[in-house]
Write a protein that binds this DNA or RNA. Structure first.
Length: 963
RNA sequence: GCCGAGGUGGCGGAAUUGGUAGACGCGCACGACUCAAAAUCGUGUUCCUUCGGGGGUGGGGGUUCGAUUCCCCCCCUCGGCACCA
């Protein structure tokens, strides 16, 4: 037997498979289809490190498995090669981006080829190929025609280093550019924008249909879309120092001057004691450039604040969450439409311009930020919601009661009462007696429970409705409670004494604030603590108070009623913004629009697509906000397709995400020149059955789902979602536990690993490292373990026997079952563990040729080269092992005749007995009682015996052991 | 802060309709082969132990004959979002 020589064997089969077109996907084969897709790579100049192929190995294993199970498999690969990184790389290395991309792709393909992947390369696509981006442009035209692509002049994110506009999604959470880390500015500029918000609701709702997606990805999408329901309510304005403006009506709509706010809590309208506008709010700008320009007395102060706010970067404005700042617009008041009271109007940068209407009604009693602001500027805080806690019960007994917190300023501790029977710690509490006022009740209860007599009232809460079940009395209770805070007077000693009979019931204890929070579990008492001691506003829902005719209503009903009654509008807002779709760079798909003075923005006729990128001398960004394409007059100047007059081409290009938003469709029909995808083929192959990737999963999936739903609406595709099942890929860290990076010098190149250890070893190792979705550090030792497994399997040739051994047969059938189930579930690590177990058993007992062949088939998806060599050369099969039919297992062969049964005495394992399958309790008891090993553990007759057939027996000698 | 996922030997990890915790691999130790080394093969490897046993799946409590698995509370790690009204 020769030693396994991976260098020779792997190369040989890779060439053979290519020559045989083993992996070409057939159309109309009549087999069930399986579309298995990797998130296609961006071919960087760095090449691959060992982390990159992990996902590709998984899809390769899965594809081979499905093929052997009789599926027609579509498993393609392509290149996402437009975009800033490719362009920056090209500029840095002084080559044309196209040349750089071609070179990088060649390198990537070579690296991938070494790993023996089964891609159908006849379907290779490249987003920078004009025959591909023709259809990216085509989709844009359809969006334009449906009004979903529009021009906007809103200020956008501008990266001064990349010299281009960016979508919100291109920013890090601290507001810096995700590519280069520069601080991003706001710059007003003409932009193309896609109306993704039109699809926000559907993208959100249809997440529920994606049952085979990991929940964390779905959750991330929900966060990103950020839907919230609320209402828009108008507050009319009055001008206190210039009352002559009060009758003013907007000539456009005839409405009086007003500010429209967005709120999710219209039920708190009676508690809205001031308004806040974002510094960028149009009304703030109106302060100095409209007919109201003399209505604000402190115009200069306001202007200074707004300018200062605009100078602050996104980072400064968002990290500065301690201290809120703002300026009141003096001379203007807003009228609360519920109370008709005049309330002040502020400008403050804690309100964001791009969310809702850019203006809020502040309800300091029930919002943390408004509360902080109101405290600082001494604004009125009016509670309008009375909290409801607990779960309402059937037929409750109604009571009024109090909760009293007593603070001892001398020791800075708080009084708690620990009830012994319930093992529960509370503050002082108790029911009100007839005719008693709450404060008297509180003082009385404090006195009764603690002997403190000299307490001073500090503050109290609004009423709190509390529902609970009083277990001690066996009744459901609904109580209205008021919380109080009292302080011990200076001269009083901290009292401790209790009567003897009381000591049996409860202890009184004094704890510092830090401990109290973790001791008080009761919802009502914890809420009183939050309101009175931590002085936090109540932000939950409840019953309305101080709200005129709505008092007593539930929040949920009041939201509707109040919104309607003040002429508000129920609306939904999203955190997701429309997608800024143009980039002022060279290396992207030209946006197929022609600007004409007469006709405006005119779409390029479909028959003129693609609008190809012209050759240019300088593709560096101009820095003026114009794309480098703007300089090429011969390209820019065209005839208007609509009127025949002079027109100019749109010179902005599309963002990198464009091409990847639909590529999975093109793989199905990559060479179609008449359509993006053939209707019949689309029905045959879509949706993608398994989609594998990690990293930018959230953004890419948002964009791709948006385009897919649009294409569904215009009849190009037949499914509402593109990807049925999503498998998230965990990354591979370097051996030192850090990210693999040039910077740390810890990159491991797969070429080196393949050369030294072989592709099969690398494949098996990466699948064995841990659960597929886990991030795990590379281990060279672990890699060697995989190599040993490959070589042990190879050496099984010298363990062949004529007859089969029962243990080997059983293990083989177990392995067939386990490997089949685990590959389907992407649990590659445990399927390899089971195959290792089989090799161990087979090495010990020897195995027949037939069993060996079957085992090789199981291993073939993971180690395609070594298994093919044995299959064809050693066993002389004419056809590839990868075209063979997947083995099936025989249920009967899985079971053994005897089982090892655990013997427990009082729940502790004391040994085991071997019995035949199906042995009865009597059989086993007989066996144990006659076995001296167990005699010492069984001094007398067991009180109870628990018997689980074929698993264990538990003899309970005494129930009281260890208790 | 909110949402999601997770926490098991020296390491990666396995096991959940509640039923012998630590499969498989790595590492380590010892042995065989060898002049020697590598490779390979074999044995052992959760911790403590007075060798009888005892403890042990992030911590604390509960249910149970029996809990990694179910319930309650808390802590920590990772990921996403974050002044979103």
């Amino acid at each position: 037997m020769q030693k396994y020589d991976h260098k020779k064997i792997e190369k040989k089969w890779q060439e053979q498979w290519a020559a045989d077109e083993l992996y070409k996907t057939a159309e109309g084969s009549g087999k069930p289809k399986a579309y298995i897709l990797d998130m296609f790579p961006y071919p960087s100049g760095e090449g691959l490190h060992v982390g990159h192929p992990k996902g590709y190995i998984a899809t390769d294993v899965y594809s081979r498995f499905k093929k052997m199970n009789g599926y027609e498999v579509l498993h393609p690969m392509g290149w996402d090669a437009f975009g800033l990184p490719a362009e920056n790389f090209a500029i840095k290395h002084k080559v044309h981006p196209r040349v750089a991309v071609e070179r990088n792709i060649e390198n990537f393909k070579k690296q991938l080829a070494h790993l023996g992947f089964n891609y159908d390369w006849s379907r290779e696509i490249n987003t920078t190929d004009p025959s591909y981006y023709k259809w990216t442009q085509w989709v844009f035209l359809q969006l334009f025609k449906k009004g979903l692509a529009y021009e906007s002049h809103e200020p956008i994110n501008w990266c001064p280093s990349c010299q281009t506009g960016l979508a919100n999604e291109d920013l890090e959470s601290d507001g810096t550019c995700e590519r280069c880390g520069s601080t991003v500015e706001k710059k007003p500029m003409r932009q193309w924008v896609l109306k993704i918000t039109d699809y926000a609701d559907r993208m959100l709702q249809d997440l529920d249909t994606l049952t085979q997606w990991p929940s964390h990805i779905k959750e991330a999408q929900r966060n990103w879309i950020g839907r919230s329901e609320g209402a828009e309510i108008d507050f009319n304005l009055t001008f206190t120092t210039h009352p002559e403006h009060n009758g003013w009506r907007n000539p456009e709509d005839g409405r009086p001057a007003h500010i429209r706010v967005f709120t999710t809590r219209p039920d708190t309208l009676f508690g809205a004691t001031y308004l806040v506008l974002a510094p960028e709010h149009p009304w703030v700008r109106a302060v100095w450039d409209t007919e109201h320009n003399n209505t604000v007395e402190n115009k200069d102060e306001v202007a200074a604040y707004v300018v200062a706010a605009q100078k602050k970067t996104e980072i400064e404005r968002t990290t500065q969450d301690k201290e809120k700042t703002g300026v009141e617009l003096m001379g203007i008041k807003a009228v609360n439409p519920a109370t008709q009271e005049e309330i002040p109007v502020f400008v403050a940068d804690y309100v964001l311009a791009h969310y809702g209407t850019g203006a809020i009604m502040a309800v300091p009693a029930h919002d943390e930020r408004d509360y902080a602001f109101a405290q600082k500027y001494n604004l009125p805080i009016v509670p309008v919601i009375s909290p409801i806690t607990g779960v309402p019960q059937e037929n409750p007994e109604y009571r009024k009661s109090i909760v009293a917190i007593v603070h001892d300023p001398k020791t800075d501790t708080y009084l708690t009462v620990r009830w012994k029977d319930r093992n529960q710690t509370l503050f002082v509490g108790g029911g009100m007696e007839d005719g008693e006022d709450p404060q008297t009740t509180a003082a009385r209860e404090i006195c009764e429970e603690t002997r403190c007599t000299n307490v001073r009232y500090v503050s109290q809460t609004m009423p709190i409705r509390h529902n609970y079940f009083a277990h001690s009395k066996g009744v459901a209770r609904e109580i209205d409670a008021i919380g109080f805070l009292f302080e011990l007077e200076d001269d009083e000693e901290t009292p401790q004494t209790l009567e003897e009979n009381e000591k049996e019931q409860f202890d009184i204890e004094w704890h510092p604030a830090t401990e109290v929070a973790s001791l008080i579990k009761d919802e009502l008492h914890a809420l009183v603590w939050q309101l009175l001691v931590k002085k936090e506003p109540y932000t939950g829902t409840g019953l309305l108070i101080n709200s005129d005719v709505y008092t007593g209503m539930q929040s949920v009903d009041a939201k509707v009623a109040i919104t309607n009654d003040v002429g508000g509008m129920r609306t939904t807002t999203y955190k997701l913004k429309d997608w800024v779709f143009s980039r002022q760079r060279y290396w992207g798909e030209p946006i197929p629009i022609i600007h004409c003075e007469k006709c405006g923005a005119v779409p390029v006729p479909e028959e003129d697509l693609p609008v190809t990128l012209p050759e240019v001398d300088h593709y560096e960004p101009t820095g003026t906000g114009e794309s480098p394409l703007a300089d090429i007059e011969s390209w820019v100047n065209v005839t208007c397709p609509s009127c025949g007059g002079a027109g100019k081409r749109e010179t902005n290009t599309m963002p990198q995400w464009a091409g990847s938003s639909w590529y999975y469709l093109r793989f199905v029909d990559p060479h179609n020149t008449n359509a993006l995808i053939d209707v019949r083929k689309e029905k045959d192959w879509m949706p993608v059955d398994v989609y594998v990737g990690g990293d930018h999963a959230v953004r890419h999936l948002i964009y791709a789902r948006f385009w897919h739903k649009f294409l569904y609406d215009i009849g190009v595709v037949s499914t509402i979602e593109p990807f049925t099942r999503l498998e998230f890929l965990g990354f591979i860290l370097a051996e030192d536990g850090r990210k693999m990076s040039k910077r740390w010098g810890n990159i491991i190149n797969p070429d080196d690993v393949v050369l030294q250890h072989g592709a099969d070893t690398l494949r098996v190792y990466e699948m064995f490292m841990g659960p597929f979705e886990n991030t795990v550090a590379w281990s060279t030792n672990g890699l060697v373990g995989a190599q040993r497994f490959i070589e042990r399997t190879w050496r099984l040739q010298s363990h062949l026997t004529e007859t089969t051994h029962d243990a080997v047969t059983r293990e083989l059938h177990r392995t067939i079952r386990k490997v089949s189930e685990d590959i389907e579930a992407f649990k590659f690590n445990t399927s390899i563990a089971q195959m290792m177990t089989f090799v161990n058993v087979a090495t010990e007992h020897g195995l027949t040729e037939a069993d060996y062949r079957t085992f090789l088939q199981l291993l073939a998806p993971f180690a395609p080269h070594m298994t093919e060599e044995l299959w064809r050369v050693h066993f002389g099969n004419k056809d590839s092992i990868h075209a063979s039919a997947w083995p099936t297992y025989n249920e009967e062969l899985l079971t053994e005749e005897t089982v090892v049964l655990a013997v427990q005495i009082n729940g502790k394992v004391r040994g085991e007995v071997t019995v035949s399958v199906g042995a009865t309790q009597d059989d086993v008891v007989g066996l144990i009682t006659s076995d001296e090993r167990f005699a010492r553990w069984i001094p007398n007759t067991p009180q109870r015996i628990i018997f689980v057939p074929n698993k264990l027996i538990n003899m309970v000698i005494s129930d009281n052991v260890d208790k």
